[in-house]
Design a binder for these strands. Structure first.
Lengths: 142, 142
DNA sequence: TTCAATTGTGATGATTTCTGCACAATTAAA
DNA sequence: TTTAATTGTGCAGAAATCATCACAATTGAA
């Protein structure tokens, strides 16, 4: 089965794209513009900007508008965990997809799922952007 | 953030509805028909049938067509874990939502997410339909 | 055999989500 | 100040998904 993760206004690809973008920024000395990132990943510049806009608001990326603008990491790659990215992008306190009562079986089910999601995130917390970058470099050398 | 789980052809509500339906079946002596279940839960009979059809194929439920037909559990409530339900409904080897290469960072990311999902499922494995039923009964008494 | 009632599922209109355009706001060089 | 190039985002058409209808297949009672 396929576990799908969805934020309020971003599609199912955002998680992969966000991580790959951060890895890209981590390996770049210069600011990267949305169209450069988009091109490297075969995605749409607008899509990339929407993701980076969120990451910028969460403080992981610095965005500079105007001519000569672009994006760069604002934290060290080792300080950004995959869980951070997951949470930053999902922040939207958006519409719960299923209205859950505050008592009874349904409540219990909701709590159970919530707890399971915590486990999901705990796992993601063990990885940083730096580790993803190392992985890339390792592949390059072989 | 809201973690959303989606199978190939069922909506985001399936997980809740499937669990509640199984709890309902577990607490019933007689066969229940889709329209009875649907009514109790404020859902559509077709929706309920689609879920139960899958659970039937996975062997957790017995479905009988024709007049005087209906559904009943085919395993004891204590033998069905929430993870079982999760997997039974998600079985569809459906279209991966994101095409992942077999090497490089993207592959690593995919594996990482997959591993995190395993953690998610491990948590769900700790609960059975019987436990959900107990929860319901506990609430009733109070 | 006939018949009423059920399951399983294809099809379809409604709704939601996604993609990408277009442009206001911004920026810093010249 | 002017200008070219960028970010951020509202919006609209496209695509995907959802809910439900409709009906074939099935079932067992009478």
């Amino acid at each position: 089965m396929q576990l799908m993760i969805q934020s309020g206004d971003l599609g199912p690809k955002w998680f992969h794209v966000a991580l790959r973008t951060l890895v890209l920024l981590a390996s770049s000395n210069t600011m990267l513009k949305s169209h450069q990132i988009a091109e490297k990943m075969g995605e749409d510049p607008t899509f990339v900007r929407k993701i980076l806009s969120k990451l910028s608001k969460s403080g992981y990326v610095t965005a500079q508008g105007g001519r000569y603008g672009g994006y760069q990491l604002s934290k060290s790659p080792g300080e950004i965990t995959v869980k951070d990215v997951y949470q930053a992008l999902g922040d939207s306190e958006a519409t719960p997809f299923y209205t859950v009562p505050s008592t009874g079986v349904e409540y219990f089910i909701a709590q159970m799922i919530s707890h399971a999601e915590t486990r999901f995130q705990e796992e993601l917390k063990q990885f940083t952007i730096q580790q993803l970058l190392d992985q890339k470099d390792a592949r390059r050398k072989s």
